[in-house]
Design a protein around this nucleic acid. Structure first.
Lengths: 151, 151
DNA sequence: AATCAGTAGTTCGTGTCGCGAATCATGACT
DNA sequence: AGTCATGATTCGCGACACGAACTACTGATT
């Protein structure tokens, strides 16, 4: 947990500060697309497929009422649509509108581009090692797929 | 930027999802200490030393008015104190109160403990590699020391 | 010394965010 | 039918973040 002997940073500090960095990049990219980070995240999740409110709440770790508001605002902005769920009349399915899909695509691509620039100082091999280790941390802790990658 | 051939996750996805994970842990730890994540972050920054509002704004990447509010609320909660700055009568120096220092210490320690648990699936050697690579990313991008490590 | 542009912070108004408690509608089970 | 659980919304609240307008002080210029 402490700084390692070679003067570098410990895992904990590295993780926290990297998260801070990613958040800042994410927020800036969102802002330039007229989105809040939360709305951007919602769009990115919905890029893959549509979800029912309950599922979305789990993925984004939001209380029910918080999600209702987020979807309300996104719907008002024409990015998202509420559909009735075939399997359960109580549930509400949330999907991207055409406009939302376009914006999601643009926001996602640009954000990828910028996040990808963060480890610019690393060699290709180092980036792969980083991706591998961080990927294991993500999987081990079951971080939800809040940001699907292209492909 | 894409998924690597071995079925793992790309650097971008790994970074974003790891950030999401860290945020969640941070927020939960803060909540359990009666703090919002932002207040927790403010306390952590101030653990090292006191800062003038302008410096704090740069560190936390907040607009002036946002920081005023954050410091207001933290001050109201007795965690932080506004002092006059000796060198410049316009500036305001922000420092932890005794109570704030205690809480900061507790919150920081507990948060460290939990963040440290995220890479539990990694060997000691792997953790060091991760810390090294991520540390370089952090330094290359001049991520501010928003979360000093013990020592 | 008087002036005046620039800087440090605050105030104010607006919209977003996140939560818990209460509520409503539908589903599932007896 | 009756009852209980579940999915979502509503409501009220405080926190957050921002920009624009404002106040107070600094420092350079005249």
């Amino acid at each position: 947990m402490d700084k390692s002997a070679d003067g570098g940073i410990g895992v904990v500090g590295a993780l926290v500060r990297a998260a801070f960095l990613v958040d800042a990049v994410y927020a800036e990219a969102a802002r330039e697309h007229g989105l809040t980070p939360q709305q951007g995240q919602l769009l990115c999740v919905l890029m893959g497929r549509s979800y029912v409110m309950g599922e979305l709440g789990g993925l984004l770790r939001l209380a029910k009422s918080s999600l209702t508001g987020l979807v309300d605002r996104s719907e008002r902005n024409g990015l998202v649509r509420r559909e009735s769920c075939e399997a359960d009349a109580r549930a509400v399915r949330v999907a991207l509108t055409a406009e939302g899909a376009v914006l999601a695509e643009r926001f996602h691509a640009e954000t990828c581009r910028r996040i990808d620039g963060l480890p610019a100082g690393l060699s290709a091999a180092e980036r792969e090692v980083l991706a591998g280790l961080l990927g294991r941390v993500v999987l081990d802790n079951e971080a939800p797929p809040v940001f699907g990658e292209p492909g």
